[in-house]
Design a protein around this nucleic acid. Structure first.
Length: 525
DNA sequence: TCCGACGTTGGAGCG
DNA sequence: CCGCTCCAACGTCGG
């Protein structure tokens, strides 16, 4: 049996069920990654994340070579490339990990049909998440819950049936066929049309690095056991070395599957057994992995999860469409140093702390600029190393009070919020050097500094640094009123957007129940 | 059907 | 510096 293992995520050897399935009964194994133009040439993936991907592929290739195999990298649409190599290499079986992203589902359905039509067997396995997401949906009665605590009970049910247990990396691999060995290798980032100079390697990609970092974190048992997410700081200058304020920053490794979420969960569990008074979800480290699982399940079971219209869990809110405001936010020139510093770090490093994401997301949407969360999500999707559709869109809905979270009167101040963490404004000074000499008193609101102070700090607001594009005290109040109206419209059972009229939310508590019950299941009554 | 408790991470003002 | 209350008042769950 000759098997092609089609790698997309799970760029690792450890805890890789699809890899194990591909090995079983194979005389030849072709590990293949396909650089799909839908991702590569579309502008969807920024330089930093593409670089992370290439490093991860490079690392995987090295690990495969150590087992007398190697990674074959194809370039082109997998709908063309895979059938070609199935023929050329006489592939009898295709194995891949289930991917629940919107694009991936459609793509994988097509590929599976092509394979069957060409007599190629198809084997799929879950592996990117801790559980089989269809099973989690089943525990929820067929429709995803938008409530974390409800989700926790579903997860507990499922993990009792299928304990979260990682599997070891294989020690031997079937050899490649001779023809396949001649195929092209990994391109460099400039060969893919990206400017090498725009790259900033803060987090190097790859399974080796992921496991090393996980191990480093696990050594700090006390820290692991007592981790409380809300206690961490968004303004830590070096989040990857700072031992007192940082998070793990393992998200990019989880996104690409350089690190298995099941392995991480299981290793943390071992620490918990030695520290009986450990923290608990939602704030604990286990809690963080469960948030990931939560959003994945929700996205898997929700149509049009990436947008507002047609998304049954998303509040319909009449966002504005002001290209200037959006551009100012995206390009870090809102005139609010905290917002601009975070957006600068995002662009430079591809990573910002979760609370910085909250702050800039709230600012763009319900807090200040009243722009659609979809636009913000697109920017994050391009720039974040860990950009992950389920989690990204989910969190944008959360922050914009479109789903999951509804207390729109709780609004982040771009001035008061960062001050709680960083009184001196070191974070701002680092990312916005033009404000380096601004006194701490004015660092988050430099337009309030007397002109003499601005002069002695060599930073004239309106010249060296922008004036604020909106007045937070004014617009945040106006926007709260707009949110109240949108919620009122929702309660009255009609959409407030584009004259669309829907009965959504008119009576039912969960509009999903009326719209997307899986055909295989009967409604619960 | 109603009501209270709760919701990972708000802000301002107070003691 | 911390913890408390109020601000005005969201949806969801469960008794």
């Amino acid at each position: 049996m000759s098997t092609l293992l089609w790698l997309r995520k799970s760029l690792r050897l450890h805890d890789n069920p699809a890899l194990c399935a591909a090995i079983e009964g194979s005389t030849h194994l072709f590990p293949v990654f396909c650089l799909d133009p839908w991702f590569v040439q579309s502008g969807r993936v920024g330089t930093n994340r593409m670089n992370f991907l290439l490093e991860s592929l490079h690392d995987l290739d090295a690990s495969l070579r150590a087992l007398n195999s190697r990674l074959i990298v194809l370039q082109g649409d997998p709908r063309d490339e895979l059938p070609r190599v199935w023929r050329e290499w006489k592939v009898e079986r295709l194995a891949f990990e289930i991917d629940t992203e919107e694009y991936a589902k459609a793509r994988d359905d097509e590929i599976s049909r092509l394979a069957q039509s060409m007599g190629v067997q198809v084997v799929t396995r879950w592996g990117h998440t801790m559980c089989d997401l269809d099973q989690l949906l089943k525990h929820a009665g067929g429709t995803p819950t938008t409530n974390y605590n409800s989700f926790l009970s579903h997860f507990e049910m499922e993990s009792r049936l299928q304990p979260v247990k990682p599997i070891d990396a294989p020690r031997r691999l079937p050899p490649l066929g001779a023809i396949a060995a001649a195929e092209a290798t990994l391109p460099s980032i400039d060969q893919l049309g990206y400017a090498r100079s725009h790259r900033s390697v803060i987090l190097p990609g790859g399974e080796t690095e992921a496991l090393r970092r996980l191990e480093e974190h696990l050594k700090r048992e006390e820290w692991v056991a007592t981790f409380e997410k809300p206690q961490t700081s968004p303004t830590g200058m070096n989040p990857f070395g700072d031992r007192t304020r940082s998070t793990t920053a393992l998200s990019p490794y989880l996104k690409f599957g350089c690190l298995s979420s099941r392995l991480m969960y299981d290793e943390i569990k071992k620490v918990y057994t030695r520290h009986p008074k450990h923290s608990k979800p939602p704030t604990s480290l286990h809690g963080q992995l469960l948030w990931r699982e939560f959003y994945y399940t929700c996205a898997h079971g929700t149509p049009h999860f990436s947008q507002m219209r047609g998304n049954p869990i998303c509040r319909q809110i009449p966002w504005g469409a002001d290209e200037e405001l959006l551009a100012a936010w995206r390009e870090a020139r809102t005139g609010y140093p905290w917002i601009d510093a975070a957006m600068t770090q995002l662009r430079e490093e591809g990573w910002i702390h979760h609370l910085a994401r909250h702050a800039v997301a709230c600012f763009l949407t319900r807090g200040d600029l009243w722009q659609s969360w979809e636009e913000g999500a697109k920017v994050f999707d391009e720039l974040l190393l860990d950009a992950d559709p389920a989690i990204n869109y989910g969190n944008w809905m959360w922050l914009s009070c479109s789903c999951f979270f509804y207390q729109y009167f709780r609004c982040y101040s771009p001035v008061a919020f960062p001050r709680k963490y960083d009184k001196e404004g070191e974070y701002v000074r680092h990312w916005l050097p033009c404000l380096k000499n601004m006194p701490a008193k004015y660092i988050y609101e430099p337009w309030k500094a007397p002109i003499a102070v601005q002069k002695s700090a060599s930073c004239i607001v309106g010249v060296d640094y922008p004036k604020p594009i909106v007045q937070h005290e004014v617009v945040s109040k106006e926007n709260m009123a707009k949110m109240a109206m949108a919620y009122e419209a929702y309660k009255n059972g009609k959409s407030s957007v584009g004259g669309l009229s829907t009965t959504m939310g008119a009576k039912g508590k969960n509009p999903l129940k009326q719209t997307i019950l899986p055909s295989s299941k009967k409604p619960r009554q």
